[in-house]
Amino acid sequence: MEKRFFDKVEDNATVRIWAETTQQEKGDSLTEGYVSELWDFTRVIVTQNNLQEIKEIWGQWDDEIKWLFYCHYSDLPYLLDVKIDERLFRALVQYWNSAYNCFIFGKVDLVPTIEEYTALIRCPKIQVDRIYSKAVNDPAFSKRNLRDLILVHLDIKKRIDVFALSIHGLVIFPKALGHIDEVVSDLFDRLSKRTTPISAILAETFRSLNACRRAGEGRFIGCAQLLLSWFHSHF
C-alpha cells in the first residue's frame, strides 16, 4: 500500500526520460554568451518543521484509515519520511539560475516539471487543467490546534482532512515554522474540487530559490522533500 522514497524515484523514471528527451530535442534555453550575475555562493537555510507528532499519528492509524487517506489525498505521507540532506540541498541551490528558472549542470539545464511532480505525488483525483492560484497573504494558525483536532475528532473523514491539511501546511508550504498559513487552507478547500496544487508547489519552489539566490542567503520555504525526490530521480 505505502510506497517509500526510492519507490517514488522509480515511479518518476518514465516522466524523467520524457523530460530529458524533450530538452534534448528543443535545445538549450540559455542565450548564447549569457553570463550569470548571481551570487557565487548562497547561504541557504533548510530549517524544517518538527514532524514527529504527525508521523506518530500516521503510524498509529490502521490500514483502513490509511487507505481512506490514499483515496482522497494520494501518497503524501511518504514526504514525512524524506530526510533532508542539508549539505546536498545547499549544493543543489548553487546550480539554480534565477534568470531562466532552471538548474544548470555544465551544459545541461534541468527543472522540475508539472508532469514530474504529478508523478511523484501520484494523486489520481486531481485534474491538471484545474490550476489553483491565489495571491493573498492571510494570517496563520498554530499546528498545535491541528494536532488536537486530528486526535479528538470523532469523524474519521474529518481526521484525515485535518491530517492532509497538516502535511500541506507543514511540509508542502512550510512558510512559517510551527504555523499554517490560511492561504493553504484556501488551497486545501479547492482540492475537493479536483484542483491540482502542483503549479502552486512549483511556483513557491521557484520563488524561494530565486529569492535565496538573488540575496545570496535566506531560508528555503518550498517543499524541500519533493525537490530532493525529483533530484534523486535524475541522479
Score class of each variant (00 low, 15 high):
F105I: 10
G106M: 13
G106H: 13
K107D: 14
K107H: 10
K107M: 09
D109M: 03
D109E: 11
D109F: 06
D109S: 12
D109L: 01
L110Y: 02
L110M: 07
T113P: 03
I114S: 10
I114E: 14
I114T: 13
I114L: 09
E115M: 05
E115S: 08
E116A: 12
E116T: 07
Y117F: 15
T118V: 05
A119F: 00
A119N: 01
A119K: 00
I121L: 13
I121C: 05
C123P: 01
P124M: 02
P124S: 03
P124A: 06
K125M: 01
K125L: 03
K125D: 00
Q127E: 07
V128M: 02
R130I: 04
R130N: 05
R130Q: 08
R130F: 06
I131E: 06
I131C: 05
Y132E: 03
S133H: 15
S133R: 15
S133P: 07
K134H: 08
A135S: 10
A135E: 11
A135P: 01
V136L: 11
V136Y: 05
V136N: 08
N137V: 13
F141S: 09
F141Y: 14
F141H: 12
S142K: 10
S142C: 06
S142D: 06
S142A: 09
K143R: 07
R144T: 13
R144N: 12
N145L: 13
L146V: 13
L146S: 08
R147C: 03
R147D: 00
R147S: 02
R147F: 06
D148N: 11
D148T: 12
D148C: 07
L149K: 13
L149N: 12
I150P: 03
L151C: 13
L151M: 14
V152N: 15
H153T: 15
H153D: 15
L154E: 15
L154Y: 15
L154T: 15
L154G: 15
D155T: 10
D155I: 07
I156K: 14
I156P: 14
K157I: 14
K158Y: 14
R159I: 04
I160A: 01
I160F: 05
I160W: 05
I160S: 07
I160G: 04
A164N: 15
A164M: 12
A164Q: 11
L165E: 12
S166D: 08
S166V: 05
I167D: 03
H168D: 13
H168F: 15
L170W: 00
V171D: 01
V171Q: 02
V171P: 02
V171Y: 01
F173N: 05
P174H: 00
P174I: 00
K175C: 00
K175G: 00
K175D: 01
A176W: 00
G178E: 02
G178Y: 04
H179F: 09
D181A: 09
D181I: 00
D181G: 09
E182W: 09
V183F: 03
V183D: 07
V183E: 08
V184A: 04
V184N: 04
V184R: 04
S185G: 12
D186F: 08
D186N: 10
D186T: 12
F188A: 03
F188P: 11
D189K: 11
R190C: 09
R190H: 08
S192Q: 07
S192K: 10
K193G: 04
K193L: 11
R194F: 04
T195H: 10
T195F: 13
T196L: 04
T196Q: 06
P197S: 11
S199Y: 12
S199N: 14
S199W: 11
S199T: 14
A200N: 04
A200I: 02
